[in-house]
């Protein structure tokens, strides 16, 4: 008897079981194999470090973003050099420190919008999915209407409404911008979460949880929400470049953060006016926007492929 057991144990050891992975470690594994997404993740990480250093460490920032050059007019429209990595603008301001400031703002807005969008989306989506037919219909009609608005135009309008008033909490222009963009962007996430939860509600494990008498909040938070995380993560990551884009457009057409704050869109717009004189002024901020958008999109692409259950 003991021999058989020993052999069985030995066999168990020698059998190479395929490594068991959960959804997330499996997704991570797949993401690691996507070279473009991996490079994007690396670039974004490096960018975040450089931008943080460039905003909070004087030795990297080197100049105040809105400090005028001291040697006017000699310091105007300089080409990139060791003194000014990215050159200077018409007022002799250092483009490097301004692009650093703008990129930080873009990242703040890209991430901040997703926080707000996710909160509203989770709330509205869950209420629509589990709150009964009337609430569901109401929520869906509202999202239908929100879809009918031309979104960029609506963001511009909201931004103008929020601007120039003494709001109790929304006084900060960056926060105003985040809310203007988020008020338009929550619809997609809300509909996604509603759809996911509606289909999850009929699944066996939820029915089982209900059958053993789990309370409603426990079913929602413990069983349903975690299972919506995959698609929601993808939507959130894709939402980041969209928010960055919206902010850049607003800055570009003159509805962005008030000067002298250097948002990337404003920098592009300012630089574009002097395109015949000083090409560098527009190239660096435009390149920063392009880099951010590309990296987040490639990352979102990789995540979608990694988390998509159909592709496994």
């Amino acid at each position: 008897m003991a021999d058989v057991r020993a052999v069985a144990l030995e066999l168990e050891d020698t059998f190479e079981l395929p490594p068991q992975r959960g959804l997330w470690s499996d997704a991570l594994h797949r993401l690691m194999q996507n070279r473009l997404a991996l490079v994007s993740l690396f670039v974004l990480g490096a960018l975040a470090v450089v931008v943080l250093l460039g905003n909070y460490v004087d030795a990297v920032q080197r100049y105040e973003p809105s400090a005028l050059g001291d040697a006017l007019p000699a310091g105007r429209h300089e080409a990139p050099s060791w003194d000014h990595f990215f050159g200077t603008d018409i007022l002799g301001r250092d483009t490097w420190s301004r692009v650093m400031q703008g990129t930080l703002i873009s990242l703040q807005i890209g991430l901040g919008v997703q926080v707000v969008v996710l909160t509203i989306g989770l709330l509205v989506g869950s209420i629509a999915a589990i709150g009964g037919r009337f609430l569901d219909n109401l929520m869906m009609r509202i999202t239908d209407l929100a879809y009918a608005f031309p979104d960029l135009l609506f963001i511009i309008l909201l931004r103008s409404v929020l601007q120039g008033r003494d709001w109790p909490i929304l006084g900060d222009p960056v926060l105003q911008m985040i809310f203007a963009i988020a008020f338009v962007g929550w619809v997609t996430i809300a509909r996604l979460i509603r759809g996911q939860m509606l289909s999850l509600r009929e699944r066996d494990f939820v029915v089982a949880a209900r059958a053993i008498g789990a309370p409603g909040w426990r079913i929602v938070f413990q069983h349903m929400l975690p299972n919506t995380l995959g698609p929601v993560t993808v939507a959130v990551v894709f939402g980041i470049p969209l928010a960055i884009f919206a902010e850049a457009v607003l800055g570009f057409i003159g509805f962005g953060l008030p000067p002298p704050t250097a948002s990337l869109g404003r920098l592009v717009s300012d630089g574009y006016n002097y395109i015949q004189v000083n090409v560098w002024l527009v190239i660096f901020p435009a390149g920063a926007i392009a880099l951010l958008m590309l990296c987040f999109t490639f990352l979102g692409d990789g995540l979608r492929d990694a988390l998509d259950p159909r592709s496994r």
Binding site: P241, A248, V249, V268, I275, V279, A286, I289
Partner: peptide, 29 residues
């Protein structure tokens, strides 16, 4: 196609103008 869906149109416009209008002079600004 992935890069194209990620690039904002005004950034494309700016780069096109820099290359083809300002540097090469093929098109109007």
């Amino acid at each position: 196609s992935t890069a194209g869906t990620a690039m904002p149109n005004f950034i494309i416009a700016v780069f096109l103008v820099v290359i083809f209008s300002v540097q090469l002079g093929w098109f109007d600004v």
